[in-house]
């Protein structure tokens, strides 16, 4: 097994946290928006497109998390 040292281990954990926490935050946001979108679509089918767009907006958080995680990951040799 290759020893990459504690510092690099911490970077790996940070990358995991950046991805995991941002995805969790996105999920919490999508929970309420998704419910509202389903509710609106149930009353008016034309709301489906608008609802879908609004539901995926918090997904940007997960993408930011992914970018940060990748940047951190690249630091590991």
């Amino acid at each position: 097994m290759v020893d990459i040292g504690v510092g690099y281990g911490m970077i790996a954990i940070a990358a995991g946290l950046a991805m995991g926490l941002s995805a969790l935050a996105a999920a919490i946001g999508e929970m309420a928006i998704g419910s509202a979108a389903v509710g609106a679509t149930a009353e008016d089918r034309d709301m489906f497109g608008k609802g879908l767009i609004l539901t995926v907006l918090p997904e940007t958080l997960a993408i930011f998390g992914l970018v940060v995680a990748v940047l951190l990951w690249l630091k590991i040799p």
Binding site: A32, S35, G39, A40, A42
Partner: peptide, 18 residues
Amino acid sequence: AIRHFAYFNARVLAMRAK
């Protein structure tokens, strides 16, 4: 739950719009 309010109130608002 908050998600139920989001769902229910969205339906109510859609009804309100009508």
